[in-house]
């Protein structure tokens, strides 16, 4: 009834949007930025990517445009929080609402049209899924083995000390926010270009919020993000299969399952987290705090 290999392939596909978005948010949070605008950046990418893919007939161009659109809309957040020192939580929420509204308005002409077909990659798996999987070790390597990655973590851990040592806190954070925006944009476009193959208003359906939860779940590590994305994607696919198989459980309960699973694991991990700081895990020290230098 349920073939493990096909489930795994579906899982890969179902987890890719949140994997991209969560990896981007991971980099931003390691730089000390708590950007709650992931959902808004995803939907912006979903629409821009879909529109570009539809107009040019080239889905890969669509993903490129989605990344640019995500980064572009995240600039708004950068201006608010890094230039005007606005509160990060409020600015992030505003970005989500703004992105959803903007996409709904500009998305009208694209309703009901179909995306160009996606070429199949190696092993019958979408190229973008491969890209997402490759990003996991790449981001781990960047953060733990490169100078830039070390500076990024330093800025997120203690922005005053990083400034005292002469590192540019704002520029580092602006770059991290833009990267987070581009990744969220690609994640959103995967839904519209590769999964649903069309544009519908609000189609990201909370994936950005799940991505935020998964960053906490991951203990701020790249491989933890992969585990979180697969857990969520796995439960999603499993419950869809169970629904299709007509299991005698109310559909609402099954639909809830991925979210419930995320919440339960999140609570279990958070309960342990306050002790994990000495092991290098846990939230970056300056997460969510704006930096203001006196010169």
């Amino acid at each position: 009834m349920i073939d493990p290999l096909s489930i795994f392939l579906l899982l890969l596909s179902a987890s890719t949007p949140i994997l991209f978005a969560a990896l981007g948010e991971l980099v931003a949070e390691r730089a000390g930025i708590l950007n709650l605008g992931v959902e808004g950046m995803m939907i912006a990418g979903a629409l821009a990517g879909f529109a570009a893919a539809y107009a040019t007939g080239n889905p890969f161009l669509g993903f490129l445009v989605a990344a640019l659109a995500g980064a572009a809309i995240s600039l708004l957040y950068t201006v608010l929080t890094q230039l005007f020192l606005a509160n990060q939580v409020a600015s992030g929420l505003a970005l989500t609402l703004f992105g959803l509204g903007l996409a709904a308005m500009f998305g009208k002409p694209f309703e009901g049209v179909k995306a160009p077909p996606m070429p199949i990659g190696p092993l019958g798996i979408n190229w973008i899924v491969w890209l997402g999987l490759a990003m996991v070790p790449a981001i781990w390597w960047f953060m733990n083995r490169t100078r830039r990655g070390l500076i990024l973590r330093a800025v997120g851990e203690n922005h005053d000390a990083a400034h005292a040592l002469g590192y540019d806190v704002r520029a580092t954070r602006a770059a991290a926010i833009a990267f987070g925006g581009a990744m969220a944009g690609v994640g959103g476009a995967f839904i519209s270009i590769a999964t649903v193959l069309q544009w519908t208003e609000g189609m990201t359906a909370g994936a950005g919020w799940i991505a935020l939860a998964i960053v906490v779940f991951s203990n701020w590590t790249a491989f933890g993000v992969l585990a979180g994305a697969w857990l969520f994607g796995g439960v999603t696919v499993l419950q869809l299969r169970l629904q299709a198989a007509g299991v005698n459980v109310p559909v609402q309960l099954l639909s809830m399952a991925p979210y419930l699973a995320t919440i339960i694991v999140l609570v279990m991990i958070s309960a342990r987290q306050k002790y994990s700081r000495k092991a290098g895990g846990a939230a970056p020290g300056s997460l969510g705090n704006n930096f203001h230098a006196l010169r």
Binding site: R153, E157, N158, A161, A162, A164, L165, G285
Partner: peptide, 9 residues
């Protein structure tokens, strides 16, 4: 005031 990063090695 130490300019160290607690979570780093």
């Amino acid at each position: 005031h130490f300019s160290l990063f607690d979570a780093l090695t």
